[in-house]
């Protein structure tokens, strides 16, 4: 007959909690998944990378919403045809790879003459490509007026895995910033 108080209190707690859980099941159940990341294994060849990069550039990278390839005249954003050749000489001290990487990771730090800027860093949301995806995009860009050289082992400047020594954002406007966080990967790289 006499139910112990402790039991009653425990029962009340469970019932109240269960009730709120029930309420939680009544509302629409939506699971939001992150945008799909292109999986890249370490044994991809440069040619593979170019293919993946082209797909990304056309697809979720949204490159060609702004840029064009092989178009001249009054353009709002630089045309990318022959970019690989021009990349070698754009910034003194930057080789083509570094220049391409900088224009993807930190596009506002160098703006091609005659254009107004406005490109978002594509490693950031809302586009937010991963380092490997950007690696593939660089490989693709290298084929525009040149030969792709990037492999899965190439160190991409500005990326999280970039070692010290390669030119960093330090040479652009954002001055005294330190090397990025993930120094722990140096050992592996």
């Amino acid at each position: 007959m006499r139910v112990p108080v402790t039991l009653k209190v425990a029962l009340l707690t469970v019932v109240a909690t269960a009730f709120y859980t029930y309420v939680g099941q009544l509302v629409p159940q939506k699971e939001v998944h992150p945008p799909e990341v292109v999986e890249m294994s370490a044994d991809l060849t440069t040619a593979d990378l170019v293919g993946i990069g082209e797909e990304i550039a056309n697809g979720k990278g949204l490159c060609f919403t702004c840029h064009t390839v092989g178009k001249s005249g009054a353009l709002r954003f630089p045309d990318l045809d022959g970019i690989a050749t021009r990349a070698e000489t754009r910034i003194a001290g930057f080789d083509a790879l570094t220049y391409l990487a900088q224009s993807l990771y930190d596009p506002e730090s160098y703006i091609v003459e005659g254009f107004a800027g406005g490109m978002p860093p594509i490693s950031k949301p809302p586009i937010g490509l991963t380092d490997d995806e950007i690696r593939a995009v660089i490989a693709y860009l290298q084929t525009l007026g040149g030969q792709a050289t990037v492999t899965m082992d190439t160190l991409i400047p500005f990326s999280a895995a970039a070692p010290e020594g390669v030119p960093m954002a330090a040479e652009s406007e954002s001055g005294e910033s330190e090397p990025p966080a993930e120094t722990s990967e140096e050992g592996a790289a």
């Binding site: 990771y105 930190d106 860093p121 950031k124 500005f158 999280a160 954002a169 954002s174 005294e176 910033s177 330190e178 090397p179 990025p180 966080a181």
Partner: peptide, 8 residues
């Protein structure tokens, strides 16, 4: 932090 995430 900087654009690459380094502490400023």
């Amino acid at each position: 932090i900087s654009s690459t995430g380094a502490r400023i």
